[in-house]
Simulated assay, not measured.
Amino acid sequence: MTADSELGEVIVEFIRNGPYVKCSAVHTATGVEVSAMGPVAEPRAVERVAIAKLKRALLAD
């Protein structure tokens, strides 16, 4: 679980599938979930993309 100053509490999960990693991010207050995929060698970059997608998803509501 991470805390983002803009989002609040976010649950982050990584699942490896061969050379790729899937990062799912769930906003605990609303239950909104997004995911991003990328190379297994760059999990933090994939996490940044997932968090950015979550911010956009929450702004769209």
Score class of each variant (00 low, 15 high):
2 T>I: 15
13 E>H: 08
61 D>W: 12
55 K>Y: 02
10 V>F: 02
53 K>S: 04
17 N>Y: 04
17 N>W: 01
25 A>S: 08
16 R>V: 15
6 E>Y: 00
58 L>S: 03
57 A>Y: 05
3 A>Y: 13
60 A>K: 15
57 A>I: 05
31 G>F: 07
44 R>G: 09
24 S>K: 09
9 E>H: 05
32 V>K: 13
38 G>N: 08
6 E>H: 02
44 R>L: 14
49 V>W: 00
17 N>F: 05
36 A>L: 07
45 A>S: 13
37 M>N: 12
5 S>K: 09
59 L>R: 11
54 L>D: 06
58 L>N: 04
10 V>C: 01
14 F>C: 05
29 A>E: 11
14 F>H: 13
21 V>Y: 04
14 F>I: 03
47 E>D: 06
1 M>S: 12
12 V>C: 06
10 V>H: 00
39 P>F: 14
42 E>K: 14
29 A>H: 03
9 E>A: 07
25 A>L: 01
61 D>L: 14
55 K>G: 05
56 R>F: 06
54 L>F: 05
59 L>W: 06
39 P>L: 15
23 C>L: 07
47 E>N: 10
26 V>Q: 06
54 L>E: 04
32 V>D: 04
19 P>Y: 07
4 D>W: 01
10 V>R: 00
10 V>E: 01
33 E>G: 02
8 G>P: 02
30 T>A: 06
43 P>L: 12
38 G>K: 06
29 A>S: 12
43 P>F: 11
26 V>D: 02
35 S>T: 07
54 L>V: 04
47 E>W: 05
51 I>K: 02
42 E>Q: 15
53 K>T: 00
4 D>F: 01
14 F>S: 10
52 A>S: 11
53 K>C: 01
14 F>T: 11
37 M>E: 15
34 V>I: 08
58 L>C: 04
42 E>Y: 13
46 V>G: 09
53 K>W: 01
53 K>L: 10
13 E>M: 05
28 T>N: 03
14 F>G: 10
45 A>Y: 09
37 M>G: 10
30 T>Q: 03
18 G>T: 06
27 H>A: 03
51 I>F: 02
36 A>H: 04
52 A>T: 11
55 K>H: 03
16 R>F: 09
40 V>L: 15
18 G>P: 04
27 H>C: 05
20 Y>M: 15
61 D>H: 14
20 Y>Q: 14
